[in-house]
Design a protein around this nucleic acid. Structure first.
Length: 752
RNA sequence: GCACCCGUAGCUCAGCUGGAUAGAGCACCGGACUUCGAAUCCGUAGGUCGCAGGUUCGAAUCCUGCCGGGUGCACCA
């Protein structure tokens, strides 16, 4: 028996008891055994409500009857100590020593692999993540993608799957040409080294420059007669009628909200003091006839003609920016000319492209390596972008796709039950689109790797793309539309939410992003300050015995914050830091990255993350730092209490049997739950490293409570079974943390 | 218009294959360093689980409708 099979075994006992009472299989299966709430008698239990109708008795009576029957089935299961009917529930109390032995022995045997699948699943899954563009450095959004992809890979591997990690780098296209063009025209330095910049930042800088210049060009054009003519044409064009109406309506209703509110009577206003209520009421009013009449009046009113004109201009120019780039812009024309030269293999353009891409790859390598993110295969779109074309032509011959007006090839998406326009797979000029290459690379991968499943870690804004992609792939290769041998789908979009800043979305075109390298630097500096605070605080307290800990820490923090002049920090380090500067930097890096990774992974992947740089770096509470801190304390006990290592325990069973206090048993229970937590996280609809982060916190929390309890101070404990039992429990706990850290990608430290 | 995601404590989030009293962290307030590390621990306080129906013995969880926020629906990627 293993702890992984504990719940399974208990369920089997429950089924046997229910079957003996004549309960049918469906009903038996519908009743699952689960952990009891705290403060409730027993450790696992199940409700019997759904038996009431068939048995024509009160649930409480049924529970007593089922408990009596279950009692007869547990004699072969020594782990079950007692069966108790609690109201309408049947609970079982588990034998604490048997449970502790199970968890501790398993952890000691497996070490950092504690919780790993007992057998490989035989499933081979390829996971694509990161997929960056080479025109700009990576930002917080990529950080979430990289960390999710990496930890999901770790998680599935831990749960027994064979995992192949893939990256597909978008190194071609208009956006790269923009950076190249800006480099040619507007550069101050020739190379990243000359500019003193990382390669990807150097290239990304030119992407921002390009967009700044383009905006300037566009703004200048807006004032020309040409622009007026375009605006006038748009204003009268039938096709843009809806856009105009929408812009006007939005302008009117946005401007009218406060007037509407002031127009209400006092009573109505008082009821709508909450912002949300007011929004709701206004939304309701917008659909009323009165609102429509007010809008119609505004639309006709000559006094508001200027406001209408302004609203329309804003709407037009915002909508027209892309068309301007394509049809009128000098910069746009030059960019497209460069793209054509690239496609034609122009040696000069290709040389520039190679040179700039090399700079970017160097920068990316540094970022990936610092983040601890890696791949088993890296692909470049410049090599794969044409892959899907033949496939599409084949589909055309087979009648799966069709030629549409103008000569483009499209797929009717209703073939796989989707609504909407046909999806273009080849442009009328025969060139491929994003979807085409995804089709090609997907099929090629299935041929090369022969994996069972392909997962794509991509933001939720691309959900539609992947639905269509999977649908089309299913038409081309019906086996991919069918479930894999494991019963799971063969293609899955691991969609995750965007990362936003407190003041809204990040805009890489404007350079308004949280840069990945800056973020890691920030975490490093913060961790370094925290590391330095301790020895400085100690020194302050040594000099002034009246000083409280809190005050000393605060003053130490202030000293570090004030050390901004060159050399200040070095002086502080030299004076107070007891170890080498290299060791300080190493620890700061490890602690800082652990904080970042834990913070990002602790969210459910599908939720949109609101990232407040100032507040997310907090090392207090449920954080990655807490995990490292707990681990360092555990290791410290091994060193200090047991003189360099954990003691050898001859009578393990006897030592474990001495673990009886509630705090000890609570920690045991967290360890018992660990393998199940891994399974649940890996087999969730979307594999969820956040569940691992949550559970390792539970483990650390249970350990910290025990650690802080005066009855559990190992250093003050006489030698004997209890002390040895605790040493085994703490070793097992350390292994559980090691296992979780390996999934989350956290590096652990022996000392902070 | 259609599709997807979100709405839970002041803030950031768990819980959502229905089950026992809805949980954490932060922030606030009050406590704990002479023993293994106070980046810790203990305690107090904080909730119409967006709203309204429905299914059920039982709903934060499932269904329907509505409200609010976000995203997508290119011969862009």
């Amino acid at each position: 028996m293993s702890i992984r099979s504990l719940d399974h075994d208990l369920n089997a006992l429950k089924d046997a008891a229910l079957e003996a009472l004549g309960v049918d299989a469906d009903t038996r299966a519908a009743i699952t055994i689960a952990a009891t709430p705290d403060d409730m008698e027993g450790d696992r239990g199940f409700p019997v409500f759904r038996l009431a109708k068939a048995m024509r008795k009160k649930p409480n009576e049924i529970a007593a009857e089922v408990a009596a029957e279950l009692e007869r089935h547990v004699s072969d299961a020594p782990i079950v100590a007692r069966v108790i009917a609690v109201g309408p529930y049947v609970n079982v109390a588990l034998d604490p020593s048997a449970l502790a032995a199970l968890a501790i022995e398993e952890a000691l045997t497996l070490g950092a692999r504690f919780g790993q699948a007992e057998e490989p699943t035989g499933v081979h899954v390829a996971i694509e993540y990161s997929a960056p563009n080479t025109n700009k450095p990576q930002h917080l959004g990529h950080v979430r993608n990289n960390l999710l992809g990496q930890s999901v890979s770790n998680l599935l591997g831990f749960a027994g799957d064979r995992v192949t990690r893939l990256n597909l780098i978008n190194d071609r296209g208009v956006h790269i040409c923009k950076s190249m063009l800006a480099y040619e025209r507007f550069r101050g330095h020739d190379t990243p080294a000359e500019a003193g910049m990382k390669g990807d930042h150097f290239v990304g800088h030119f992407y921002v420059v390009f967009n700044t210049k383009l905006t300037q060009e566009f703004d200048a054009w807006k004032a020309t007669a040409d622009a007026d003519a375009a605006f006038t044409a748009w204003s009268e064009d039938e096709a843009s009628k809806r856009a105009r109406a929408g812009a006007l309506r939005k302008t009117f209703y946005d401007a009218n909200q406060s007037a509407w509110f002031d127009g209400l009577d006092d009573g109505a206003r008082a009821e709508l003091d909450a912002d949300a209520d007011r929004q709701r009421a206004y939304g309701k009013w917008k659909r009323s006839d009165a609102a429509k009449a007010a809008y119609a009046a505004w639309e006709q009113d000559s006094a508001s003609a200027a406001a209408r004109e302004a609203a329309l201009r804003v709407a037009f120019f915002s909508e027209y920016k892309d068309a301007y780039f394509n049809e009128r812009s000098e910069l746009g024309a030059a960019t497209k000319a460069m793209l054509l030269k690239w496609e034609a293999g122009d040696p000069e353009v290709r040389a520039l492209w190679s040179k700039m891409n090399e700079w970017v790859f160097e920068g990316f390598d540094a970022t990936y390596s610092r983040m601890g993110v890696g791949f088993d295969g890296v692909y470049y779109e410049s090599n794969t972008y044409a892959l899907g074309r033949e496939l599409v032509m084949l589909g055309l011959e087979e009648g799966i796709f069709e030629r549409v007006e103008g000569g483009a090839v499209a797929c009717d998406v209703s073939q796989f039950g989707m609504k909407g326009d046909p999806k273009i797979l080849l442009r009328s000029d025969g060139t491929t689109v994003y979807m085409t290459q995804d089709l090609g690379t997907a099929l090629e991968r299935f041929d090369v790797f022969e994996m069972d499943q392909m997962f794509y870690v991509v933001g939720d804004e691309q959900q539609h793309h992947f639905k269509v992609l999977f649908g089309v792939l299913g038409l081309l290769r019906p086996d991919l539309a069918a479930p894999a041998a494991s019963g799971d789908v063969r293609l899955k979009h691991l969609s995750y939410g965007m990362v936003e800043l407190p003041d809204g979305k990040m805009k890489s075109r404007e350079g308004r992003v949280v840069d990945a390298d800056d973020l890691m630097d920030g975490m490093h500096e913060l961790a370094r300050a925290e590391l330095l605070k301790r020895p400085i605080s100690d020194a302050l307290r040594a000099a002034d015995s009246e000083l409280s800990i809190d005050d000393a820490m605060e003053r130490a923090g202030a000293l570090i914050a004030d050390a901004t002049a060159p050399g200040d920090l070095d002086a502080l380090v030299a004076e107070h830091w007891p170890l080498t500067r290299e060791e300080l930097d190493r620890r700061a890096e490890t602690v800082g990255l652990a904080g970042l990774k834990y913070y990002i992974l602790n969210f459910n992947p599908k939720t949109t993350v609101s990232f407040d740089p100032d507040r997310s770096l907090d090392p207090k509470g449920k954080t990655g730092v807490y995990t490292l801190y707990s681990y360092a304390r555990l290791r410290s006990i091994g060193r200090k209490v047991f003189g360099g290592g954990w003691p050898v325990v001859d009578d393990r069973a006897g030592a474990i049997a001495a673990l009886v206090s509630p705090l000890e048993l609570a920690l045991v229970e967290r360890l018992v739950e660990w393998p199940g937590a891994v399974d649940a996280a890996a087999r969730a609809e979307t594999p969820n490293p956040g569940a691992i982060a949550a559970h390792v916190y539970e483990i650390c929390d249970a350990f910290s409570r025990l650690y802080n309890d005066s009855d559990h101070v190992l250093g003050a404990m006489p030698d004997g079974p209890r002390k040895l039992g605790l040493s085994l429990l703490l070793r097992a706990t350390a292994h559980a943390i090691e296992a979780a850290a390996s999934i989350l990608g956290l590096d652990l430290l022996e000392e902070l």
